[in-house]
Design a protein around this nucleic acid. Structure first.
Length: 476
RNA sequence: UCCUCCUUAGCUCAGUUGGUUAGAGCACAUGACUGUUAAUCAUGGGGUCCCUGGUUCAAGCCCAGGAGGGGGAGCCA
């Protein structure tokens, strides 16, 4: 039985076996207490070893980090702090952990240090809580879509199109790194490569997702995504997970409604199903906040923040309206922005942060951006200047969703590909969806780790994925 | 990639103006203690001061280069 279940049992001296890792051991002359955790819950179960039940030699091997199977009786706890505990009959040690060498101590460790021991950090309270929340959110994503008539479409991880324009790509090749075959021009001859052409890891499943939506109407993808950008920030990974719904017959407004409903559902699901873990993370956050200056401390606790998102509507406004607000802001008038504000600029983090954290103090959906700063596939507005793009901006995280209604008019789409320099033949299959039975449709990409960041209240994206891949870092 | 800060015991960090044998808390080991909650108390062991080179009678401290890490920016999800 897992500890999560055991802690909910009525203690009636029934025999139980607990297989778990030792968190701490406290010994006095006649009794020893062992805190055990198997990752099923944030809570430990306490095993009580009374004198002469377990040999000294065995008890000596029970140290922080070791793995044991404890057999005993489940009884009501005599001490404070827990309802039940295990009165130990015997202990089998599965694996020892030399206390001189085991890096996790029963004390607070810095997140930076834990990142260096990513193979062991799931054994800490903080990371096991994060991983359970991460799981719950992933499950809720599938549940939401399934319950709403969406089909899970598996888009390829290896792609032959380099036209998505979402960022630098990782090359996939079986050609030798030294002396690869060359063509007549002296360049690498990809005709000799495994796929007979240049291939990369996907930067987005969207283009293929659209193909699915043009047949199944409502699809979503949820898979790993790769960007070879040299990004060194708290919100970027080289390998991350992205959710991309794509829906036929949806226009921008439907897309916004979906995005808002979807996020609220996920946050609510976490609140309802991960209460213990979120409570733990909230406490952790509170301790951390205490070390900060007063003005930097957040006004809301983690739970309050999550409830606030669930209970309030997201602010919706156009890019043009956002620029107006920025131009009329004190920050702009007092020259506080590092980047000047003007219609046509790509909004900088400081601008987004002003809108979300200072002006509206809630999630914001920005729409109808200038076409020059957005992707070629976004549907052009009637004014010829803007496109039906939408970004969902969250406090502390920035862009959590980027999406749009797609251009469904073949001529207009071809014209845009020409303007931005994408060769038609490289995405002929994408263009054909507009040639045969085209339909209005829309979709978006949600950064999974950014969502997990928000729900857990963590601040570095490397701490919400088990094994982060970032520039110069792919250990584990 | 740019800006900025950091690197001293297993962990978190202190280390004065460059000056003898580099410190603390926690962890760990040993002992004490009839029920603890990251137990408590006592004692003890533990150091390539990130690396390379330089300045100096003398470098953890100053200078140059490099490596690793944090935070911010850009790119985006």
């Amino acid at each position: 039985m897992q500890i999560k279940e055991l802690l909910q049992q009525q203690p009636a001296e029934q025999e139980v076996i607990v297989k778990a890792w030792v968190r701490t051991k406290r010994v006095s002359s006649s009794v020893a207490f062992i805190a055990l955790n198997d990752g099923s819950t944030i809570h430990n179960i306490q095993a009580v070893v009374e004198e002469n039940t377990v040999s000294e030699d065995v008890l000596k091997l029970v140290t922080t980090g070791s793995c044991v199977a404890v057999t005993g009786k489940l009884i009501a706890s005599q001490g404070q702090g827990q309802a039940v505990e295990v009165k130990v009959k015997s202990i089998e040690v599965y694996g020892t952990a030399d206390p001189e060498k085991y890096p996790l101590q029963p004390k607070k460790h810095s997140l930076e240090f834990l990142r260096e021991i990513a193979h062991l950090r799931p054994r800490t309270n903080t990371f096991s809580a994060i991983l359970r929340v991460r799981h719950a959110l992933a499950f809720a994503i599938h549940k939401y879509f399934n319950d709403n008539g969406f089909f899970y479409l598996h888009t390829p991880i290896i792609t032959g199109s380099d036209a998505e324009g979402a960022g630098e790509m990782f090359r996939v090749t079986t050609l030798p790194a030294i002396n690869p075959p060359l063509n007549e021009e002296g360049k690498v001859d990809y005709k000799e490569d495994f796929f007979g052409k240049e291939t990369n890891l996907t930067v987005s499943g969207q283009l293929e997702g659209e193909l699915g939506a043009m047949a199944l109407s409502k699809i979503y993808t949820f898979g790993p995504t790769f960007r070879a950008e040299n990004s060194n920030t708290t919100r970027h990974l080289a390998e991350f997970w992205m959710i991309e719904p794509e829906v036929a017959f949806y226009e921008l407004i439907d897309n916004m409604n979906l995005a808002e409903d979807f996020i609220k559902y996920l946050v609510k699901y976490a609140l309802e199903n991960c209460g213990d873990d979120i409570a733990f993370l909230e406490k952790r956050l509170l301790d951390e906040e205490k070390t900060k200056k007063k003005e930097e401390q957040s006004e809301m606790s983690l739970t309050e923040k999550l409830k606030f998102v669930v209970e309030n509507t997201f602010e919706r406004l156009t890019y043009t309206e956002a620029i107006e607000i920025l131009l009329n802001s004190k920050a702009h008038k007092q020259n506080k922005f590092n980047y000047p504000v003007q219609w046509g600029i790509d909004l900088q983090s400081e601008h987004e942060r002003y809108l979300v954290e200072k002006h509206f103090k809630k999630p914001v959906i920005l729409t109808n951006y200038p076409k020059e700063i957005k992707a070629f596939y976004m549907k052009q507005d009637e004014d010829g200047k803007t496109v039906r793009a939408m970004d969902v901006l969250f406090p502390g995280i920035g862009e959590i969703i980027g999406g749009s209604q797609r251009e469904d008019n073949l001529e207009k789409l071809i014209q845009r590909t020409k303007e931005v320099g994408i060769p038609e033949e490289s995405i002929w299959w994408y263009l054909e969806t507009r040639k045969f039975g085209s339909a209005p449709h829309a979709g978006f990409g949600l950064g999974f780790e950014r969502l997990v960041l928000f729900v857990t209240g963590m601040s570095n994206i490397r701490d919400v994925i088990p094994f982060p891949r970032t520039p110069k870092s792919a250990e584990f």
